[in-house]
Design a protein around this nucleic acid. Structure first.
Lengths: 201, 201
DNA sequence: AAGCACATGTAAACAGTTACATGATTAA
DNA sequence: TTAATCATGTAACTGTTTACATGTGCTT
């Protein structure tokens, strides 16, 4: 009954109570880049979660014309989150704006395509560095694919989830950057024989 | 004005004319896993593309109560696709069902979590093998990050886009599988100190 | 005085999924 | 005869984005 957005919110509240504003802020560019939502969606989802008994709120004083509400996960919410976590995700339909463009890149002007790919690569490079910095700021036991001996956070520690998500983000960005570099090289090589003009029409 | 789905369809039609049914079939599990759509969405999008002058159809005889229509991209459609291709994609909001679960995995039962992660890894392994098989079936010039000397397809060849998308898929699956293996190991290590029971409530 | 961060909501539009509806041909 | 594949469409619903709406307190 709970939606994926609902579980995203519960995952945040399981760490600490938050206002709708704080949840929205975390869901703009989340740690590990795995879910996003607008504040309008968050506020309506809170209402559904509360009527389902997964969260509860207390009113605290704050600015503006309305009450500020701080939400906390309930025991029921925690249980439902914990049992959903181990169910099978449906095979990701992974819609990629970038891949969609690359699929049709053979129609485009080579120079313009290369410029776009370089911009995208630089952006991913920045994101990757951000993830690495975040990993570095945390405790760095457990980090590194073969770090072996040092004991990491216990399974019951939320940092386990944080680090796992960050590691996924690092791996994803690294693989994307590697692919973009390969693609730029391939595009250069493919372009050597062709004239550098737009070949539409 | 054209939606991302519209460009996905144009990208397919730029290769060869197709019926709505064929486009839908390709969009269920696309080459490189980068876009999906239901047939209901495809048929309505065709209407929009046609009223915008990007596609045209001819009626061919076929089964069923309605006419079978074969769609082809127009010169205008090709031009609009080619110029969209080199515009910047917006930073992918990349919603991941799996990452969402892993972010809250510290709440779950370790055994159940490991079982789920193993199922997911095996599934990704299958997808990866599928991509590799597809790459192997095509001409395999250009394939391999540092294959260097052999000339690949010209930039104006649609196979350039096919291979690029497949390479992205291979990189993504490899990185996902590597991360899942790391995660299973970390989960084992983290679980050694904790009792293997559900720690909710 | 202008702009930003905090803080919460509603409304309209668009994107996407699931279900409904029809019917021919071919293979098990 | 049962099911799958080919083939096209509409309707209802859910999810998501964008725009509207309000108002405080702090900083520049």
């Amino acid at each position: 009954m709970t939606s994926l957005l609902g579980y995203a919110i519960l995952g945040l509240l399981a760490r600490e109570p938050m206002t709708g504003y704080e949840v929205s802020r975390r869901l703009r560019r989340p740690i590990g880049y795995f879910w996003t939502a607008q504040h309008s969606q968050v506020y309506t989802e809170f209402a559904r979660l509360e009527s389902g008994g997964s969260v509860r709120h207390v009113v605290v004083d704050g600015p503006g014309p309305r009450d500020t509400k701080r939400y906390a996960i309930t025991a029921e919410g925690r249980t439902s989150l914990a049992s959903w976590v181990v169910t099978d995700p449906k095979p990701a339909p992974a819609k990629s704006d970038l891949l969609l463009r690359v699929y049709s890149i053979w129609l485009a002007d080579r120079g313009a395509a290369l410029a776009m790919l370089h911009r995208v690569r630089d952006e991913h490079q920045g994101i990757l560095e951000g993830y690495r910095a975040t990993l570095g700021r945390g405790r760095h036991d457990l980090v590194g694919p073969h770090s072996g001996q040092t004991p990491g956070p216990g399974l019951a520690d939320p940092e386990f989830g944080d680090i796992a998500a960050l590691m996924a983000g690092v791996g994803y960005e690294e693989s994307t950057i590697g692919w973009l570099n390969w693609l730029c090289t391939a595009l250069d090589r493919a372009g050597e024989s062709d004239p550098p003009t737009d070949r539409v029409g």
